Amino acid sequence: MAVVAERGSDDAVALCNGGYALTFMYGDFEVGAAMIDRALALNPNLADGWRVAAASPDLATRW
């Protein structure tokens, strides 16, 4: 996932999907949440980003 964070640092979709995988599949909440935050900062209209953020109460309260 570090590759996604480095190579896709300006790609909101890649960051969102990578953040989802880290958060919900691997349990790495800190890095996953940071990637989702970055995705939503790049594209506030990214529906998948909001869907992922809403699925986790901790992420949803950050926004």
Rank of each mutant, 00 (worst) to 15 (best):
M1Y: 09
A2I: 13
A2V: 12
A2T: 13
V3T: 13
V4D: 05
V4K: 10
V4G: 03
A5D: 10
E6N: 07
E6I: 09
E6Q: 11
R7W: 06
G8A: 15
S9Q: 15
D10M: 07
D10L: 11
D11V: 02
D11W: 01
D11K: 02
D11L: 02
A12W: 00
A12S: 11
A14N: 03
L15M: 07
L15K: 02
L15G: 04
L15I: 02
C16S: 12
N17S: 11
N17H: 09
N17D: 11
N17E: 13
G18R: 06
G18K: 07
G18I: 06
G19W: 01
G19F: 00
Y20S: 08
A21T: 13
A21I: 13
L22F: 04
L22W: 03
L22Q: 10
L22Y: 02
F24Q: 06
M25P: 03
M25F: 14
M25C: 13
M25T: 12
Y26W: 12
Y26L: 14
G27W: 01
G27A: 12
D28A: 09
D28R: 08
F29A: 14
F29M: 13
F29T: 10
F29K: 13
E30M: 02
V31R: 11
V31T: 15
V31Y: 03
V31H: 08
G32A: 09
G32F: 04
A33M: 06
A34T: 01
A34M: 04
M35S: 01
M35D: 00
M35T: 00
I36D: 02
I36Y: 04
I36N: 03
D37A: 07
D37S: 05
D37Y: 01
D37W: 00
R38T: 06
R38A: 06
R38V: 03
R38S: 04
A39H: 01
A39E: 03
L40C: 01
L40V: 03
L40F: 01
A41M: 08
A41G: 00
A41C: 04
L42I: 12
L42C: 04
N43F: 01
N43A: 11
P44E: 05
P44Y: 08
P44I: 09
N45A: 14
L46H: 12
A47M: 11
A47R: 14
A47I: 15
A47N: 06
D48W: 03
G49P: 02
W50Q: 09
W50N: 06
W50F: 11
W50D: 05
R51I: 09
R51S: 10
R51M: 10
R51N: 14
V52I: 15
V52D: 00
V52T: 09
A53Y: 01
A55M: 14
A55C: 05
A55I: 01
A55Q: 13
A55K: 12
S56N: 13
S56I: 02
P57H: 09
P57E: 11
P57A: 08
D58C: 00
D58I: 05
D58G: 15
L59F: 07
L59K: 01
L59M: 14
A60R: 15
A60C: 08
R62Y: 02
R62F: 01
W63V: 12
W63Y: 15
W63Q: 12
W63T: 08
